[in-house]
Lab assay of single mutants.
Amino acid sequence: MAAAAAAGAGPEMVRGQVFDVGPRYTNLSYIGEGAYGMVCSAYDNVNKVRVAIKKISPFEHQTYCQRTLREIKILLRFRHENIIGINDIIRAPTIEQMKDVYIVQDLMETDLYKLLKTQHLSNDHICYFLYQILRGLKYIHSANVLHRDLKPSNLLLNTTCDLKICDFGLARVADPDHDHTGFLTEYVATRWYRAPEIMLNSKGYTKSIDIWSVGCILAEMLSNRPIFPGKHYLDQLNHILGILGSPSQEDLNCIINLKARNYLLSLPHKNKVPWNRLFPNADSKALDLLDKMLTFNPHKRIEVEQALAHPYLEQYYDPSDEPIAEAPFKFDMELDDLPKEKLKELIFEETARFQPGYRS
C-alpha cells in the first residue's frame, strides 16, 4: 500500500510507478496490472468513496492506442447498470505532455475469474450472474457493438453480487458484411471463450460470437473449470467437437473457408456428449439454455433477447427493466489503419471533457 500523499506533496508512487492523480484522489492501494497499465484503488475526496484507477501508458504502440481509444469512446457513450462506466479521466493539459491516461471507475471487490478459483456457486448465484451478463449484453448488442472478449476476468463483482462487464478494448461495431482481413492475426481474445466460426472463417462476425462466450462462462460457473481449455488453435476446435459432436452437413455448409471445411470433413465422426453427463448436478433449465448458447452453427445460436426470456431466468426476466441503447454506435473511421500519432490526438480530444474549465 502506498503511503497517503500529504496535501501538495506531488504524485504518489505505487510499486515504483508514478500515479499522478492528486489532489482529488489519494490513499492509493495496488490492485493489479494488465498488459499496459496498473490498477489501484484510491480515495475520492470529492465523492467520499474509494474508486478504481487504471493507469494506461499506450502511446508507444499502435495496438494499445487503438484499444484505449475504443474503450474510452464506447464506455463514455454507454450507460447501463451492468456495464462499468467511466467516472473521470485524468491526463496532462497538453498533448505533448500526455504520456499516461488515468481512467477512474467504480471500485468492484472482485471478478468472476477470482471468485470461481475459490468458491463453488449455488444455482441461485449462477442464475443471477447469468441474468446480469445477458442484461448488459442486450444493451451492448442493441448499440450494434460486439464485445468480443467476454470471459470471467472481464466480469466485475461486488459483495452485493452486482455484476458489471468491463474491458471493451477489443470491441467492434457489428459488421457481418465487412471482410476484416487479418482478423485472426489481430484477434487476441482469450482462445477458450472463442466461437468456432472465428477459427473457421475470417469473413465478418456477428453478435452470436458473444453468446458463445457467455455459454462458455455459464459452463464454467457450473463446474469451476473452463469447458474448452484448448492449448492452441486446432486443439481448441477438437475440444469443442469432442463435446458438441461432429457438425451436420448443414452446419458445414455455413463454413465459407474450404480449407477449414475440408479439415472438419477429414475428422472421424464424434457423438455429442449429453450435458447432464458433463454437469450431473446442474439445473435442467440451465443445461437447456447452455445447449442453445453453445450451438456450433452461429445462425442457430440463441440471441440475447431470447436467452433473457428463457425459463431458467424467469424469476428475473423483465423486458421493461432491460434497457437498450438510445442509438446504434458508430465509429467515424476504422481505427485499425491509423498511425499511433493520430490515435493519440483522438484520445486527447475524447478525454477533453474531463479537463478543468472544459467548454463543449
Rank of each mutant, 00 (worst) to 15 (best):
A2C: 00
A2H: 08
A4H: 02
A7E: 05
A7S: 13
G8W: 06
G10K: 12
E12K: 14
R15P: 12
G16L: 11
V18F: 12
F19C: 13
V21S: 12
R24D: 03
E33A: 03
G34D: 01
A35I: 08
Y36N: 15
V39K: 06
N45M: 01
N45D: 07
V46L: 11
N47R: 14
K48P: 10
R50K: 13
V51I: 11
A52K: 07
A52E: 08
K55C: 11
P58Y: 01
P58H: 14
Q62Y: 07
Q62D: 11
Y64P: 10
E71Y: 00
E71R: 00
I74D: 08
R77W: 11
F78N: 12
N82H: 10
N82M: 11
N87S: 03
D88K: 04
I89N: 13
I90A: 01
R91V: 07
Q97N: 05
M98W: 04
D100Y: 15
Y102A: 04
V104F: 13
T110K: 11
L112P: 09
Y113A: 09
Y113V: 10
Q119L: 14
L121N: 07
L121Q: 15
N123R: 09
D124F: 05
H125W: 05
I126E: 13
I126Q: 11
C127S: 15
C127L: 11
C127M: 13
L130M: 14
L130K: 02
Q132P: 08
Q132W: 01
L137N: 11
I140V: 11
N144L: 10
K151F: 10
N154T: 14
L156M: 11
N158G: 12
N158M: 08
N158A: 13
T159N: 14
T160S: 15
D162E: 15
I165N: 15
C166V: 03
D167F: 02
G169T: 00
R172K: 10
V173L: 13
D175I: 04
P176C: 11
H178R: 13
G182L: 12
F183M: 12
L184E: 13
E186I: 04
E186V: 13
E186R: 05
Y187G: 01
A189H: 04
A189N: 09
A189V: 08
A189T: 14
W192Q: 12
Y193L: 13
R194V: 10
P196V: 12
I198C: 08
M199G: 08
M199A: 09
L200D: 12
G204I: 11
S208Y: 15
I209T: 04
D210F: 02
I211V: 13
C216W: 02
I217D: 06
L222V: 05
S223P: 12
N224R: 13
R225D: 01
P226A: 07
P226M: 06
I227V: 08
P229G: 05
H232I: 00
D235Q: 10
Q236I: 09
L241E: 10
L244Q: 13
S246A: 02
S246N: 07
E250Q: 01
K259W: 02
K259V: 03
R261A: 10
N262A: 08
L264Q: 15
L264M: 15
S266D: 03
P268G: 03
H269Y: 09
W275F: 05
N276M: 01
R277Y: 07
L278A: 08
F279K: 03
F279I: 15
P280V: 10
N281H: 08
A282S: 14
D283F: 05
K285Y: 10
L287W: 06
L287Q: 15
L287V: 02
L289F: 04
L290R: 11
D291Q: 11
M293D: 11
M293L: 15
N297K: 12
H299M: 12
I302Y: 11
V304F: 13
H310K: 02
Y312V: 08
L313Q: 14
E314C: 00
Y317K: 00
Y317M: 00
P319C: 09
S320L: 10
D321L: 10
P323G: 05
A325G: 03
F329S: 13
F331V: 13
F331G: 03
E334D: 15
K340D: 10
L343R: 06
L343T: 07
E345Y: 00
T351W: 03
A352R: 13
P356F: 00
G357Y: 00
S360I: 13
